[in-house]
Design a protein around this nucleic acid. Structure first.
Lengths: 219, 219
DNA sequence: ACAAAAGTGTTAGAATTACACCCATGG
DNA sequence: CCATGGGTGTAATTCTAACACTTTTGT
């Protein structure tokens, strides 16, 4: 009796001011017909991260996206036998660069705040990923990973509000971003709604300097 | 060719105002003679946490101590073949209730800031554990896990200073602890040094209430 | 001309930091 | 009696949070 080792990937995106998770519908028992987060077995010749990356790529086509290991779960109730799952979460840019839509492959983007029942003990995995994401939002730049390279301040704020689940004050939000100095205002405007909004890009180099000085995000 | 699954446990304590890590000396190759963090294989009939707990218990005799999963590491250079290590870290109370000393079993407490070369890629595991410990110190009660049930404020402050690697202001430290209201002053004093210091105990119930309100540690 | 979303500063309150002296004990 | 470490409060500064109106565009 050996231990089966796999990776599961909680893939997030933001779409229309809602945080979404990519789910697949299981074709085989156990939990046939239920939704599940994408996962695969680890082959002996690939690293954990590589396995997670391949799974992510195969399901979304996304490349160069944020991917971070979450936690390793035991699933004592797994009916397939003894299984250890190394969970990852990934952030794929939403909005402008729309994530690959629900094609016929059984893949669906579902709102993170209205999840259907999931296979195995995967609900705790998604919950844990959400918690991690919320925490990291406050002291890292994960927020930018959910947006295309060029974005507007209202879009950025919407990402923060969506993940934190609360409204933020527009002026305070902008003031802090301005103070951090990690955004480069572009000479372009996006005229999507009413008044056109200025586009910005994220400047990772500036953020690195802040980290060195111990300055953190204040949200 | 299958994947070998194991747990490693970074066991911390505080002793004489220094943060220490429990290391063993390897008896077998590879890395024979080098220091390593305690670890073991996972048996198919035990959970990850249980395996870590057993390892911790066997090496230190400690029971009911803080144990938290850290991260799962791939060790691509492992000469024993493909290995995945689920790393945990544990906090055993120091000071009063002295941790089991270096007996003849090849176990040694080593200062976390002066580690010898370690087997495999274990240095990154210890570094990661240190980072996690430092971060958690600021918004959880891990600090109390490194002390016996009754402790003095200077002892508590020493734990914080040791882990954070910097001096804290005595008055501000006490003011914050007082403000949090999670310490119960006892009617006992420890007359270890000069002037006897008052003993306190940690009140977990009070801390839970703070968490619910979103109030965090301010260090 | 009006509805909708973008943009812009100031002020009060809260939290953080800096700082110096007295007290109890053991030697 | 003196050296050592325990114990205590206040003031300046910084950070956070609350708050309302003008601008630009599409309809």
């Amino acid at each position: 009796m050996s231990i089966h080792l796999g990776v599961d990937v909680v893939i997030f995106t933001v779409h229309k001011s809602a945080l979404k998770v990519l789910l697949t519908r299981r074709a085989k028992p156990p939990f046939k017909g239920r939704m599940a987060i994408p996962g695969r077995s680890i082959r002996a010749d690939e690293t954990l991260e590589r396995a997670a990356m391949r799974e992510l790529r195969e399901e979304t086509g996304a490349r160069h996206v944020y991917l971070e290991q979450l936690y390793s779960f035991d699933d004592p109730h797994d009916k397939r036998g003894r299984t250890v799952t190394v969970a990852y979460y990934a952030l794929v840019p939403g909005n402008g660069a729309a994530p690959s839509p629900s094609n016929g492959s059984g893949l669906e983007w579902r709102r993170a705040d209205r999840l259907p029942p999931l296979a195995f003990d995967q609900r705790q995995i998604v919950d844990y990923a959400l918690e991690r994401l919320r925490n990291k939002l406050e002291y890292t730049t994960v927020g930018f990973q959910l947006l295309p390279r060029k974005f507007t301040l209202p879009e950025l704020q919407a990402v923060y509000e969506t993940i934190l689940g609360k409204k933020l004050d527009k002026r305070n939000f902008r003031k802090k971003m301005d103070l951090l100095g990690i955004l480069k205002p572009l000479r372009e405007y996006r005229r999507t709604g009413r008044k056109p909004a200025r586009l910005y890009s994220f400047v990772p180099k500036k953020f690195e300097k802040l980290k060195d000085k111990g300055i953190l995000f204040p949200f």
